Simulated assay, not measured.
Amino acid sequence: MAACTAQGLARRILSQALFARTRLPVISSRLSSAESASDAPSPAASAASVRLSDACVQQLRRLAADGSALRLAVDGGGCSGFQYVFSLADLDAPLGPDDVAVERDGARVLVDAVSLEYIRGATVDYHEELIRSAFRIIDNPQSEQGCSCGASFSIKIE
């Protein structure tokens, strides 16, 4: 029982910290080479572990014709503790100081460094159904479980 309480407390603390982060203003700039030369894995190296499915690439290339890129973030909330948030961003907008661009065949996804840690190893997909079409995250090795609609997840606590 104590382990369950400790995990719940850890999830609440992480959720509150992540939720507080989302309210900070974003300052536009690019990552410098000095920042990526540290001993920790660089955001660009972590971005390589995020994959874009063929369906995602096709839809993003259609959107890129309109000058849009996909912005992906992880926020506190949802029925499982964290939720994926997708929005459109200007393709030519400069990257924020902690933003990483994941690109494949002309498709571009922008992710901040904090959110990237919660989706490292996952695949960004685009799925069409009879009643909706949406971007989604599939095969996220950082998540322990998710809700049935796939919009929220809980993280693995090691």
Rank of each mutant, 00 (worst) to 15 (best):
L70A: 09
C56F: 09
R104L: 09
V102G: 02
A89W: 04
G96H: 03
D105T: 14
C56K: 05
A47I: 04
D92R: 14
F86C: 14
R71I: 01
L88T: 15
P97T: 07
G81L: 02
A47L: 14
G96R: 06
D98P: 00
E103N: 09
G81H: 00
Q83E: 09
S80P: 00
C56L: 07
L70Y: 06
C56A: 15
A73T: 08
V85G: 00
G76W: 07
R51W: 06
S68T: 08
L70T: 13
S53H: 01
L88S: 13
Q59D: 08
L52R: 02
E103Y: 11
L88V: 13
S68F: 06
G67F: 01
R104P: 02
V57H: 03
S87A: 15
F86M: 11
A93H: 04
A101D: 14
L63Q: 10
R104C: 07
D54I: 10
S49R: 15
S87P: 08
D105W: 10
D66C: 10
A93M: 12
L52T: 07
L60E: 02
V102H: 03
R71H: 11
A93Y: 02
A47F: 01
S53M: 02
Q59K: 12
C79T: 12
V85H: 00
G78F: 00
F82T: 00
S68V: 08
D105N: 12
D99G: 10
D99R: 13
A69N: 08
A47W: 00
D99Y: 07
L52G: 02
V74Q: 01
G96D: 05
A107Y: 10
C79H: 12
A107T: 12
S80I: 01
V100N: 07
G81Y: 00
V109P: 05
D54Q: 08
S68L: 10
A89L: 15
A47E: 01
A55F: 01
A101P: 00
G67M: 06
R104A: 14
S68N: 09
A89M: 13
L60V: 03
